[in-house]
């Protein structure tokens, strides 16, 4: 339970955000916070792979792209009903995850990293080649999706995103403690033993890969609605890298990690880029520093020190 406290505090803080923004920052700040929450959803799903399964996927942003492009193409073609869009998104992301997962999960370690990277890049180039939907330049959405009026309320989208974040955070927390999660965690340490105990590890991992993919694709749908713009850059490998950074920064395999990581990442990006246009000159070395010297991420700061 203790491990959940930082995330719960963050949720309370986030829920009050639209109100706070009235006094400071306005819609710029709520937009930023929405982006952070969407990244948190994507990072939660990636942590299911990295933290729970020990599978370092470097192509997770592909699913963001699937969700965003499904939304963008559907709306451009005149389908604006959110439920329909979500249905199509889930179907496509399940299919993509099953095919790429079945191939990548036959490998381990570095090969797995490279293959997921390659599949992500494959999707990136595919989106770039969609000349009817903006190609390299991306696609502007002149109309948002319709969700039975929910988006029309003031801050409707904000609270829908927050609601999804909390729901997914809660469900993934359950999953980790449930039978399914125990199998994944144990297989991360000793998959041979799990096989000889009677668990077909491949099937469990593939299922986790599909679940993670679907959640990230849902985050992609949210991005498209929030930004009203989709572009191939959403699924570029740098985005996948960002998601890994968020997971590690927050503390992988830790209950509150991805949520804290996403908030910190967006905050860091924002404050560094307000300092200098070339903020990556600072962020790059900072990242190296974090990897070399800071273990356990932000979430570990809240844990009781072990003797």
């Amino acid at each position: 339970m203790r491990a959940a406290i930082p995330a719960l505090i963050a949720f309370v803080f986030l829920a009050a955000m639209p109100l706070l923004a009235e006094f400071w920052g306005g819609s710029y700040v709520t937009g930023l916070v929405m982006r952070a929450m969407i990244l948190a959803i994507a990072a939660l799903s990636l942590d299911l792979l990295i933290g729970t399964c020990g599978l370092v996927s470097f192509g997770h942003a592909a699913f963001l792209g699937i969700g965003a492009y499904t939304t963008g193409i559907a709306i451009t073609e005149g389908t604006t009903d959110l439920a329909t869009i979500l249905g199509i998104t889930i179907a496509i992301s399940v299919l993509f995850a099953l095919v790429t997962g079945a191939i990548s999960l036959r490998t381990h370690g570095v090969t797995f990293i490279m293959i997921t990277l390659a599949f992500g890049q494959m999707l990136f180039f595919t989106f770039s080649a969609l000349s009817a939907y903006g190609g390299d330049d991306g696609l502007t959405l002149w109309e948002g999706a319709h969700a039975y009026g929910a988006f029309e309320f003031e801050h409707g989208l904000f609270y829908i995103i927050l609601g999804m974040l909390i729901t997914i955070w809660f469900l993934l927390g359950c999953l980790r403690e449930a039978r399914f999660g125990r199998v994944l965690l144990a297989a991360k340490e000793n998959s041979t033993r799990m096989e000889t105990l009677g668990y077909g590890v491949f099937g469990y991992r593939l299922t986790a890969y599909v679940i993670a993919g679907v959640i990230a694709a849902l985050a992609g749908v949210l991005i498209a609605n929030e930004a009203e713009f989709v572009s191939p850059a959403l699924s570029a490998w740098q985005r996948s890298g960002d998601l890994i950074i968020i997971v590690v920064l927050g503390g992988m395999g830790r209950r509150s990690g991805p949520v804290l990581g996403a908030l910190a990442f967006v905050g860091l990006e924002e404050s560094l880029s307000s300092l200098t246009h070339d903020w990556r000159l600072i962020f790059g070395p900072l990242l190296i520093f974090i990897v070399l010297f800071a273990k356990g991420g932000l979430a570990s700061l809240f844990e009781r020190r072990q003797a």
Binding site: I113, I244, R280, L281, F283, G284, L287, I288, V291, L292
Partner: peptide, 10 residues
């Protein structure tokens, strides 16, 4: 992966 990614960004 992360540290060398940092090198690339820089």
């Amino acid at each position: 992966v992360l540290a060398t990614f940092g090198v690339i960004l820089f």
